[in-house]
Design a protein around this nucleic acid. Structure first.
Length: 542
RNA sequence: GCGCCCGUAGCUCAACUGGAUAGAGCAAUUGCCUUCUAAGCAAUAGGUUACAGGUUCGAGUCCUGUCGGGCGUACCA
């Protein structure tokens, strides 16, 4: 419809002597009196044409030729908006289209054929995933789903590093617990991981190896065991949330294939890297920073920035058209350096895009809950799902814009009723399924329903709301903001329940019942498609 | 100090990226179950969009400044 409006408006614009074609934007008015679609075209033309917007709007409308099967009215309103009203026939056609498209309704070709890598979670295996990782994981997965719905081919990747200091400390922590379990002296590392899971891992080592590791040369066997156990745990947690990674990328491989050294060498060639005080520095002052940044410490160990640059170069080498990174606001500082780095190396930084999300605050018993992985004072994702389930968890992580702090009120999420917004959507779906079951017992429909019988305001509103779905998905995908889908589904569910209360199906005349049932089926389809994108189930009964 | 993000109803948050009278949910008040799920519907109340300027036909949205909050600002990730 948008394309059609733009087309007829463009034709009408030919009456003017314009230097360049203005961009025509169609928007949806927030008041129903203002029609179904509107354009501010006349307002933007006021300046170049040096005329009053209302006069221009009049001239545009005067010459406008439109199909009355699609548009029933065109009005000029306010300062010079042109408002369009859709014809009912057009709406009925669209409604029939929704059912024809079925599980594909909402898909578009916005990102058609593009190869996209979405990197997310990327937590080092030092402990169970926490609620903070949860937001990351669900955002990454849902952004992936959105991109898939808009035509992209998506690979989900998990980036990790099992070679750094964190992992060494992890190994030492396990070793200390292991010794402890065997009644030996242990010096638990000062900044060690204190969680109970460390003891469990140590215990399994005792079970498997007995005292065999007491005189191990270093922490390596402990580290390896921990990594294995923790990764198994992480994968299981992700699976529970409906997340399946396509690839795991170990930072270590960048050292093995020489990419780290290569990156430094290239930066040196460009005079963007230099030695000072035994370290290698990245000339970030060239990119507008007030300080240069260390790439390789004097110990010879790179800082995280260097592998990050090499890793992104690697992603682009693999031929992806777009690389999306999902990370928390605390990592934002490295992002400009990575972009500067890959740009210097000759890659297109526009192909890298970042979803930054703000922190999650868990509210337990009305009190904010401070978390720290090392001190083992956290809420794990598994604990969260034990409490509220995967559907509710996903929904809560997605319902806010990534850019805003997320307050996760466990008590509220646990209420299976009114206060919990997830159920509102699922309930609407379950209700439709229930009606469908009952109606098909009572009636015997054959052929297609006569949709022109739908003329109640609630019915018309519902159809219009459904028609917005593909646009919402495309917008959410482009902006990488899944919360738009939730906002939309709430509106749809709300419009449906109004319809449900205003218009009965069971007990009505057969033809009306058939038309309304068809409408309800379409709503169920859209709800299902939307929930599928969010990774939330659509139960048939509750 | 500097950089990034944010400040919208009592609370948690939207607002199609500059459009018309700023919207939902929760909490509050009031109606509605012998009829397809009341996990619901309808209605009322709640606002100087932190503050002060500016840009223009038009600002919650853009620019400047002030105040308040979060996160960075490590040879930690």
């Amino acid at each position: 419809m948008n394309d059609y409006l733009i087309q007829i408006l463009t034709e009408s614009l030919q009456q003017f002597d314009l230097d360049e074609q203005p961009e025509i934007r169609i928007e949806e008015p927030n008041l129903p009196e203002h029609g179904d679609a509107a354009t501010n075209l006349a307002l933007t033309l006021a300046k170049p044409l040096r005329n009053n917007p209302r006069t221009i709007a009049g001239q545009i409308v005067e010459k406008l030729q439109y199909d009355e099967n699609k548009i029933s009215a065109v009005e000029i309103a306010g300062p010079g908006f042109i408002n369009f009203r859709f014809a009912d026939d057009y709406l009925f056609e669209e409604l029939a289209g929704i059912l024809e498209q079925g599980t594909d309704f909402g898909k578009s070709d916005e990102f058609d054929g593009r190869q996209v890598l979405v990197e997310f979670v990327s937590a080092n295996p030092t402990g169970p995933l926490t609620v903070g990782h949860g937001r990351n994981a669900v955002l990454g997965d849902t952004v992936s789903r959105l991109l898939e719905w808009t035509g992209a081919e998506v690979e989900r990747e998990y980036y990790f590093n099992d070679a750094g200091r964190q992992m060494r400390v992890l190994g030492e922590s396990v070793r200390a617990r292991y010794n402890e379990l065997l009644g030996k002296e242990s010096d638990f590392p000062e900044d060690g991981y204190q969680g109970e899971y460390i003891r469990d891992i140590a215990q399994s080592l005792v079970d498997e190896q007995g005292e065999g590791l007491l005189d191990a040369e270093d922490e390596k066997p402990f580290k390896e065991k921990a990594e294995e156990a923790i990764f198994a745990d992480i994968s299981q947690t992700l699976e529970r949330m409906g997340i399946k990674m396509d690839s795991f990328f170990n930072e270590h491989s960048l050292y093995e294939d020489g990419k780290i050294d290569e990156t430094v060498a290239k930066l040196r060639e460009l005079d963007l890297a230099y030695d000072k005080d035994g370290a290698v520095w990245f000339r970030t002052t060239k990119f507008g920073k007030d300080k240069d940044t260390v790439l390789v410490k004097s110990t010879g160990e790179p800082t995280y920035r260097l592998p990050d640059i090499a890793y992104h170069a690697n992603k682009l080498d693999r031929g992806f058209d777009l690389c999306v990174d999902v990370f928390g606001a605390d990592h934002i500082a490295t992002y400009p350096d990575v972009l500067s780095g890959i740009k210097s190396l000759g890659y297109d930084p526009d192909k890298v895009d970042v979803v930054v999300y703000q922190f999650v605050t868990i509210v337990k018993d009305g009190q904010p809950f401070k978390m720290s992985t090392r001190k083992a004072n956290f809420v794990t994702l598994d604990e969260l799902m034990d409490e509220v389930g995967a559907d509710v968890s996903r929904f809560f992580f997605l319902m806010r814009s990534p850019n805003t702090h997320l307050e996760f009120d466990i008590a509220r999420a646990k209420e299976a009723g009114e206060k919990n917004p997830v159920f509102y959507l699922q309930y609407a779906h379950a209700r439709i399924c229930s009606v469908m079951r009952k109606v098909t017992e009572e009636y015997d429909f054959s052929g297609k329903a006569d949709l022109s019988l739908l003329n109640h305001p609630s019915e018309i509103t519902l159809i219009k709301t459904m028609n917005k779905f593909p646009k919402v998905i495309a917008h959410a995908a482009k902006s990488r903001e899944p919360h738009h889908v939730i906002t939309y589904l709430n509106e749809l569910a709300s419009d449906f329940t109004s319809f449900y209360h205003d218009c009965r199906i069971l007990g009505e005349d057969k033809n009306i019942a058939h038309a309304r049932l068809t409408l309800a089926e379409a709503v169920a389809q859209v709800l299902r498609n939307g929930l599928t994108i969010l990774g939330i189930s659509a139960p048939e009964s509750m």
